[in-house]
Design a binder for these strands. Structure first.
Length: 297
DNA sequence: AAGTGAACCTGAAGGC
DNA sequence: TGCCTTCAGGTTCACT
């Protein structure tokens, strides 16, 4: 579910509450999510102060003073919400856009904030594809689950030249290459579809065909790199996309889904000015792809 | 090696 | 109303 923009939105929502907070107690309400919780999970993080919250690709990281790094993946349906502790509640505070599903509250972090308030940060995940890991501050980027991740599509690292190199020689379709977290880390099904539409490239095109000869330039790889960076930046600015069960950390909704050009728009008109195409859906490696066959080549 | 598809799990939505 | 099928933002693993 959550792709990079949604995870970044969650990070920004949790940051004001969690940074500088003390984790007083942790409840794990079942022995596992996608994987069993790490050994002594509760003991290793209880009593620690959260120095900072970070993100790598679709992973959230909580860096604990003098302790481990808590690494969290939201899977398809994971979300966090924050509740003030009983006694601090004000009427109407729980007017969330969606009724609470406490049956899938799997982890509850009881924290004391910097302001001396008590709060609960609750991880909810109906499908349980999410997971939590612990690593060490010095080496967390080399954790087996994160070691192979590719370049972040944020910032200016990903440019046409790099993308050209990453895709050179690959015969897999662009759709699959963009989803490959070992190449670019953080894109998912929605933003890959959207980036390909923005770049005017077919999701079925072999990835290697946008590459320049080594040392040369390719207009297609320039366009695609820019499209990827733009769509991710735009989605973060909009607070991510809210579909089905996804809600931001503060209970509010992101609104990028109203900006979709192709995703979930099968049968509707292409939004590119001057294009009269109709958005098609196809299945690639078991997942839906949405694109305009008229203007995406 | 690279690429494709199944598996993991639950809930929502649509068809009959 | 109820039952059945299909689909969903992700990742790993097994197989060709």
């Amino acid at each position: 579910m959550p792709e990079l923009p949604e995870v970044e939105t969650v990070r920004r929502g949790l940051q004001p509450v969690l940074e500088g907070s003390i984790i007083e107690h942790v409840e794990t309400r079942r022995p596992d999510l996608r994987y069993p919780f790490p050994e002594k999970f509760v003991d290793r993080i209880s009593g620690r102060r959260i120095a900072s919250l970070g993100r790598r690709a679709k992973y959230l990281t909580a860096h604990l003073d003098g302790g481990p790094v808590l690494i969290c993946h939201l899977g398809m349906s994971g979300s966090f919400r924050v509740e003030a502790s009983a006694g601090d509640r004000t009427p109407g505070e729980f007017h969330h856009p969606r009724s609470k599903d406490t049956a899938h509250d799997h982890v509850v972090f009881h924290v004391a904030t910097q302001d001396g308030e008590k709060a609960q940060v609750i991880f909810n995940d109906p499908r349980r594809f999410g997971f939590m890991l612990l690593s060490e501050e010095a080496t967390w980027r080399e954790h087996p689950m994160l070691a192979g991740l590719g370049v972040e599509p944020t910032g200016n690292t990903l440019d046409g030249d790099l993308l050209s190199d990453l895709f050179r020689g690959r015969t897999a379709p662009l759709k699959a290459a963009l989803l490959d977290q070992r190449l670019i880390a953080g894109l998912g099904n929605i933003y890959v579809c959207e980036a390909l539409w923005r770049a005017g490239l077919s999701p079925r095109r072999a990835a290697g065909t946008i590459s320049a000869k080594p040392g040369g330039r390719s207009a297609r790889s320039d366009r695609l790199a820019q499209a990827v960076r733009d769509v991710i930046a735009d989605a973060i600015a909009a607070g991510g996309s809210s579909l089905r069960d996804y809600v931001q950390a503060d209970g509010s909704l992101g609104y990028f889904q109203h900006s979709f050009s192709v995703y979930d728009r099968e049968g509707q008109a292409c939004k590119r000015p001057g294009c009269s195409g109709i958005v098609q859906r196809l299945v690639q490696s078991g997942r839906s792809t949405f694109y305009c066959p008229t203007c995406q080549r």
